[in-house]
Structures are given as structure tokens and as C-alpha cells.
Amino acid sequence: MTEQVYIQLAVEGDLDEIVLRKVIRHSSCPFEIYVCHGKKGKGFLRKRILQYANAAEKGAKPFIVLTDLDMQECAPLLVGEWLPSDYKRLLLRVAVREVEAWLMADRDNLARFLGITRSIIPQNPEDVENPKQVLINCARRSRTRGIHDDIVPYPETTSRIGKNYNGRLIEFVEGYWSIEDARQKAPSLDRALKSIHHFYDALSKRC
């Protein structure tokens, strides 16, 4: 497994991009990421995905796409809706229910980073209905200076997240998040890693 394969990413937002980049790096598949598209939310990604898939089929660099399941029933259903047929050069992975669940799955490091006790973080984050909200509630109890201020929305704001929510969590992902620990508690992350391997194998065989 040494042959380098150039790929493009498409994601919902900045945090997802950093998470996906780190997951791909962790897979140790020699993917070289060319560019990252999207970053305008989930609706936009949904609108674009067939165009990405068709561009890839016609010879553009293959795509890896990451989206959140949110309140939908299950991941295969979402994939079937977004991609009615099979595309060999586009891999769509779904975080159950939000990418924040993957971060909370590394309880030890996240507890240390947020400055909270480990037990506040849910044990099985993929069972949580609204991981973003749960993570924010964890940050509410933070003893670390700046964490509360950055991650938790101010009272009376219409925003659901704090003013530097992405920035702080990106800092966590890049510096502290252990994917090996997280995949034990986040099955959708574990499956994503495995399918990234398969994707690489399939692409490099065909090259």
C-alpha cells in the first residue's frame, strides 16, 4: 500500500473538514487531499453530491464526503436517498448522529481538554440524540479558562453555539483527539475508517 491517490473532500463545515482530514491521515492510506469542497451546510452538500459523483465518474479526482445523520433514522437510508445508485469513485460516510459524537467518544482526552470530569461525557455518544448540545452542556461545566466562553452560547443569543465553537473544537481535534480511543465507542467512526481502507484498495487496484 504505497501508491499515492489524490482525492477531494466535501463536507458540511470547517470542523467536519478537520475531522475528516485527521481520520484519513489516521487510516494511513496514502491519500493526498487535493481540495475540500462544500462547507455551506448539509442542504448544500445534498444538493451537490450527485454532481460531485458524476464529475468523479468522468475522471475528476475521487471524492470522500462526510455528513451528519442528524435526526434521520439510519445511515444506510440516508446514503440510499442521497446516492440512488452505486458510485465507485465517491465514498459517502455518515457520522451518527453528529461529528461531535466522534469527538465525545474519546472521553479521556475530551474531559482533559474541556477541564471537566470524565463521567459528565456520555459513555455511548452515538446513542445521544443531539451530540452538539450535549457537548456544549459538558463545556458549561468547564473549569478551564476560555472554554466556556468559546464553546457555550451567550444567554439570549439566537446562536446555538459559542462564538469560537469551531475554533476550540478544531484545536481539540488537531492536538488531542485520539481516533484509536474514539473508534471503540463510536461504531460509525470505526466503519468509516474501514471503508476508507476499502475505498483506497478499490481505487489503487483500478489505477
Binding site: 477531494q8 481540495v35 469542497h37 464529475a55 475522471g59
Partner: peptide, 23 residues
């Protein structure tokens, strides 16, 4: 740029297909 061209051929506007490359 071949990869941009492929996206343009799918009807994705230049602003989106090419702007990602300027980040």
C-alpha cells in the same frame, strides 16, 4: 485545471468549483 473543469461540466458554478482552490 482538469478537476475544476469536471465540476464545471456538472453545472457547478465557477465561484464554487474554483474558489476552494484559493483557500
Amino acid at each position: 485545471v482538469d478537476d475544476i473543469l469536471k465540476l464545471l461540466e456538472q453545472g457547478i458554478p465557477v465561484g464554487e468549483a474554483a474558489m476552494s482552490y484559493t483557500e
